[in-house]
Design a protein around this nucleic acid. Sequence first.
DNA 1: GGTATTTGATAAGACGTCTTGTCGGAATTA
DNA 2: TAATTCCGACAAGACGTCTTATCAAATACC
Lengths: 239, 239
Amino acid sequence: MPKTAPPDPPSAPDGATAARRRYGGVAAEQRADERRTRLLDSAMTLFAAQGYARTPIEQLCADARVTARHFYELFDSREALLAALYDRIIDELNSEALSALQAAAPNPQALVTRVVGSVMRHYVGDARRARIGVLEVVGVSAAMEQRRRAAIHGVARLIEQHLNQRVRADELPPRNYRLISIAVVGGINELLAEWLTAPNPPQIDVLIDEIALMCQALLTGAAAFAGSTAAAAPPHSMP
Amino acid sequence: MPKTAPPDPPSAPDGATAARRRYGGVAAEQRADERRTRLLDSAMTLFAAQGYARTPIEQLCADARVTARHFYELFDSREALLAALYDRIIDELNSEALSALQAAAPNPQALVTRVVGSVMRHYVGDARRARIGVLEVVGVSAAMEQRRRAAIHGVARLIEQHLNQRVRADELPPRNYRLISIAVVGGINELLAEWLTAPNPPQIDVLIDEIALMCQALLTGAAAFAGSTAAAAPPHSMP
DNA sequence: GGTATTTGATAAGACGTCTTGTCGGAATTA
DNA sequence: TAATTCCGACAAGACGTCTTATCAAATACC
């Protein structure tokens, strides 16, 4: 029985591309957005609670009340979901840092303390955020590592730009501060990992004070090296 | 045909526990050691070249000329092999750091520069070592992360002990330097990751100078904070 | 020389997850 | 009301790896 190919529907209902219908009173796009939001929320909770590696798609879908098919319409893979979540986390972190950096401060020391405090408090404010951003995205894949390192670069660049401002204000010797900035971000990241995994971590304020003090010490020491060896070193590559 | 159970061999040839025979002129224990060494060497090369995640046991065995059965006699899993390799790497790193720290130096500044230089040069001397120790062990599993953090703690403890020596010599204000030490190790680690993944990294000496300078700045700054806020802070927990 | 052990190689089962496909039913538009 | 689209649930194939079992050949002991 030669069954002829089904006739092409008249209005090209590709499902994904065209002519999506309202359902339950909400537009197709909005429904997709809601699913996406639910998935991101579930991922935020489940990835933080039991780890990314131990959270199968099935569980994410169940928690978010989304079917597997819809999941794959929104994300190519579980890792893509993690990447989207991480991007959101890092975007918020950068916004927080930027606004804190631009706020007025009586003196440079106070600015450092304030920025460190507000950024850290924001990051740790939602425990899930820090846990995912610091611990869970680590080592997932080569692509994810690249993304993570790019995020570190982003934050480091904020620091570097601020240091360059201080150079222009003659508070610091002119120099390429790129690597130092990266090291600072790496150090803070390590301290956060420490804090997150410690059995009975101290108050977050202890950590914040420690970080702020470290930054101050670094700045004080750097200012003392005005005529040092590498002060006029050429700009580093390592992009 | 009821085949009776095979009689227990008289001398308890458990294979693993007792009475192993010589073969090819070498003792059983030595044969196992050689297999173990070959596996560790192959792991060092393959994990560094193509990554831990993309190196199946089969390939390790083929490269090391060891069969899967022997692999499982020596290691419980692929991760156990990575752990053994990592332990070896970290042990060597600590030895290097310890001997560099105990060497005589004309002044404290020179000591820092020398220690940083020799440790870094050792670590990067074999590119496979740094790549595995810095990049590949990351995020493999919860157990592996714990091991990695323990290794960071170990190196940080060396730094901390050295700083406490300087406190006793009145070169630094008394204080708990544990978290700062951890942050320094984290920062260096991040710089190494940066260096290892950069498309065209600079000479390693550039990185070493940068790290040494950072340590100097940190020390100078810390010394300037003799009467600071957290100077007499109680010892942190976070074990 | 005969028997037992070790070895190397292959094969096959197990495992957990991803990914896609199908189905009836619900909601919507015409 | 009829046709269409969307939803939720289930299931089955695919995939890659781990892990164990089997077997013949090489080697050592008696």
